[in-house]
Design a protein around this nucleic acid. Structure first.
Ligand SMILES: [Zn+2]
Length: 311
DNA sequence: CATGCCGGGAA
DNA sequence: TTCCCGGCATG
């Protein structure tokens, strides 16, 4: 068994970063990627808090029947660096005051949340590919997958180099219950997948305490869960609109009638009468907030047109 | 102010 | 290709 490793912050000297919820809305955006380099480079004085927080599990996705194969998590084919990981985290953490990844040997990994699978890849795209091919069937690489898929994976932080160790007890140092309500990512079921099994969900009150046992098979997420799909920009001509309807209840339909410009030349530029009705539904940014940017859909993270809450 | 996202750019 | 940001348009 591969032992594993889990978030074990607090190694070495106590980090004094006590950014008491400072975190300015925007300041946090200063390059939130530079945390890739493992090892040193601990300089970066700026330490916004990109924390990982919240948890909640998607409705334990059950393997789309088809090839049963029951137990035995065979790995169909792999070629990625994976790290086995099986562990239960101590309940949700709101967690690390660390700005998203910090300290050496701490790497963000993406763990598949499917039934028996515990694959962990290092990139979001990698895990998406994995889920798409392994779990969503479609062994042939040419899977259509247009833009409406649901991937279940969680972003975790593993501490390498201690792979075989008693491991960690992360001790999330739960702050003064400051954590915002655990928003549940809009999980949607793709109609085409032969999903079986009711799959119960277990949620907890907004003020999480008492980690209610969730589904037995649910790998209990530790950080966040993202249900994403590739960005698939506006390109892709032959884009067949996915049948599955979109989510978002659409609170109130506000009919904003665009006034007809009395007499204006249809300038391709931007005529005064050109109204680009800003989207109605709240997009990822507003829903999740800056502090959980990792939960936005890909498009939103790239400041493109949202694809998860498109109206 | 905040939010959404086009267009442009880096790797 | 994936990823991100400047800056504008929009409330
Ligand atoms: Zn979005």
């Amino acid at each position: 068994m591969a032992a594993t490793v889990l978030t074990s912050l607090s190694t070495s000297p106590l980090v004094l970063t006590q950014t008491s919820s400072a975190a300015v809305p925007e300041s946090a955006s200063r390059g939130w990627k530079e945390a890739l380099s493992t090892s040193y480079s601990s300089s970066t004085s700026g330490n916004w808090s990109w924390d990982t927080s919240d948890q909640s599990v998607p409705s334990t996705p059950s393997p789309p029947l088809s090839n049963d194969a029951s137990k035995s998590f065979l790995l169909p084919s792999q070629g990625d660096d994976v790290i086995e990981d099986v562990t239960e985290s101590t309940h949700f953490p709101f967690v690390d005051p660390i700005p998203r990844k910090r300290k050496n040997s701490m790497k963000v990994m993406f763990k598949c949340l499917w039934k028996n699978c515990e694959k962990v890849l290092s990139t979001s795209s990698g895990i998406q590919r994995h889920i798409r091919t392994v779990h969503l069937g479609r062994n042939c690489d040419s899977d259509y997958s247009d833009g409406e898929e649901d991937f279940y994976y969680s972003e975790i932080e593993v501490n390498m180099d201690s792979l075989s160790e008693g491991l960690s007890s992360l001790t999330p140092t739960s702050p003064t219950t400051s954590g915002p309500p655990p928003i549940f990512p809009p999980v949607s079921i793709t109609a085409c997948l032969p999903r079986s099994e009711p799959s119960h969900i277990a949620m907890r009150g907004t003020h999480g305490h008492a980690p209610t046992l969730l589904s037995q098979s649910a790998p209990s997420a530790l950080c966040h869960i993202r249900t994403d799909h590739a960005y698939q920009g506006p390109l892709t001509h032959t884009r067949t609109v996915s049948f599955g309807e979109k989510r978002q209840p659409a609170l109130h339909t506000h009919t904003t009638i665009s006034k007809t410009p009395p007499s204006t030349a249809p300038l391709p530029k931007s005529a005064p009468g050109t109204r680009k009705p800003r989207g109605e539904a709240k997009k990822c940014r507003k829903v999740y907030g800056m502090e959980k940017r990792d939960m936005w859909c890909t498009a939103c993270r790239w400041k493109k047109a949202c694809q998860r809450f498109n109206d």
